[in-house]
Design a binder for these strands. Structure first.
Lengths: 167, 167
DNA sequence: CGAAACTTTCAATACTTATTGAAAATTCAT
DNA sequence: ATGAATTTTCAATAAGTATTGAAAGTTTCG
């Protein structure tokens, strides 16, 4: 397989994966592009490589900056901005986990806490409801704890521990 | 807070969470409804409770059956089908992990393997590309292993191990 | 300051995905 | 086999999301 094809295919696949990680397709593709690029790229170059419009490039670059997984770079003698990706996959995963925790887990935890002290009228429905909420809350809290550990963990420590788990 | 409100809110919140787990909103809401219901529900009842059409209910119920997180139930003396959810949150999480592994991780692993033996023309771009692919592949494989362990694990063992990790 | 270089915004529009509801297909008791 | 009960399908359409591109805004430098 030739390099250009391979690059194309990787960007495509990364686009799909990123999508299921909660990014959108273009966001994930820009990210993939910056991942495999040895130098920082300008908006122009991103537009070119992915055949997307200026507006699209701009919006998604900013979203990536928001998520904290790419950063701005100044190039001496150049007026325009360049962007580079965090290349450490581990750091990237942590960042994504952090964002998703904030965006997804926290809201449901809030609801579960609220809903937990519902007034039970003694009906079977209400009893079942309470029971389920309690279990969900327990699970969500444990997951939250696990995620937090992951987010704060050092790479080597984490994988060592995980490897032990997997034995 | 009253029970009916609480139920409403939980279904809503679960809908959102489910969505970010890769289900769609209605799928997740049907699931939430079945989770909190002490008895199995018919398509009619699902339509009623969530104010959705027959077709929509049918399609999403089937998708949930496909994912293996709800099941059919026969009720003596009734001709129509009833559905109930797996209520064990843990089993549910495992099932979702399994599906997502199949749908998301496996395809990217395939691409990474393909793309891994690209012919490097010696350019800096190609070298960087190879390096990044290698790292991604390594990460994806480790994640895959971890997921597999999770999918196969017993609940108590898993949380015990995780709790140790979190110390 | 003035104007070229560059970035951001956003209304219009294209594209994608979800939903409806009625018709077709299936199931099942008689 | 018949037909009532039930489930499934699917074309039409609604709703949601992403993308464009040109205009407005900002920055930088002579």
């Amino acid at each position: 397989m030739k390099y250009t094809e391979a690059k194309e295919e990787l960007i495509q696949a990364w686009g799909n994966l990123g999508y299921s990680w909660g990014l959108n397709k273009t966001m994930a593709q820009i990210h993939a592009l910056l991942m495999v690029s040895p130098k920082a790229l300008s908006t122009e170059e991103i537009m070119q490589e992915l055949s997307i419009s200026r507006g699209n490039a701009n919006m998604n670059v900013r979203a990536l900056l928001d998520w904290g997984i790419i950063s701005r770079v100044s190039v001496a003698g150049e007026r325009k901005e360049f962007f580079k990706s965090e290349k450490d996959v581990w750091a990237l995963a942590r960042q994504v986990a952090k964002e998703r925790r904030k965006r997804e887990l926290e809201p449901i935890l809030k609801v579960l806490k609220e809903v937990n002290d519902v007034q039970t009228d003694g009906s079977e429905e209400a009893k079942e409801f309470k029971k389920v909420v309690k279990e969900l809350k327990n699970f969500a809290e444990k997951s939250d704890g696990l995620l937090e550990t992951f987010i704060k963990a050092e790479e080597s420590w984490f994988w060592n521990t995980v490897l032990k788990m997997m034995k």
